[in-house]
Amino acid sequence: MNDAERRPYLAIGGVTKRFAVGDEEIEALGRIDLTIDKGQFACLIGASGCGKSTLLRIVAGFEEPTNGGISVHGNAITGPGSDRGMVFQDYALFPWMTVRENIAFGPRQRGLVKKEINAIADKYIKLVGLERFADRFPSQLSGGMKQRVAIARVLANDANILLMDEPFGALDALTREQLQDELLQIWTRTGVTVIFVTHSVEEAVLLADRVVVMTAGPGRIDADLAIELSRPRDVSSPEFNAVRRSVSERLTSHMSRRELRSAA
């Protein structure tokens, strides 16, 4: 791969974040430097409180970093934008809109003509396999279906970067597996860049090209591991387990180190 293709697509430079909680100030993120290539599937993993969701929200533009900045394709981001689509754990679908209307929401904001909006909606309803449920309201869908709508909603809006905040955390194991599979298919087919926050090592190793391990107090990057297993990945294979073990060790070794430090 030559240098032009390798140039960072998403660049997080010197980002820190401090929150004011009452009179106290909490340092949520230390200094974070991270670059992600176009089309890459990166997982952020770490114990709760390590700032992985905060980092994702800063990339989404929902929160401003205290220091530093983020650029996409060389353009600094200043707020939420349709190039970065967030998929929330609790779906955040518009409950008064049908599946179709939810998916068509982004295209409608761009002021496209009705025919185009419908064509886009149809395309993404089909992509996530919800043709039969297009006219249902979110309250009439299962969790897995809701998350499919949420994914389709941001893709229909031409998001190049998919930001996923523990998107499958609230789903049962069977549905989770199915959606992981579908997400990988969508990722392969559309070539979107994915930043996926999770606290499951298995999920990270199954999905990602790259696992970024974060640690808490304040949040910082502890390790940046490339996952070079061939796809499709088999969670029961010895190779997969070896990688999973090494990522787990990385995650827990740090935790015990910190515990030792706090005990001393």
């Binding site: 929902f62 939420p80 934008g81 349709s82 008064w96 904001q109």
Partner: peptide
């Protein structure tokens, strides 16, 4: 989160009132 979702999908200003806040 609904406001966040709407703003990331390109909905701002008075459109936010009509399309999100009101319903």
């Amino acid at each position: 989160r609904l406001f966040e979702a709407a703003s990331m999908l390109g909905c701002t200003g008075s459109a936010m009132f009509r399309q999100i806040v009101l319903p």
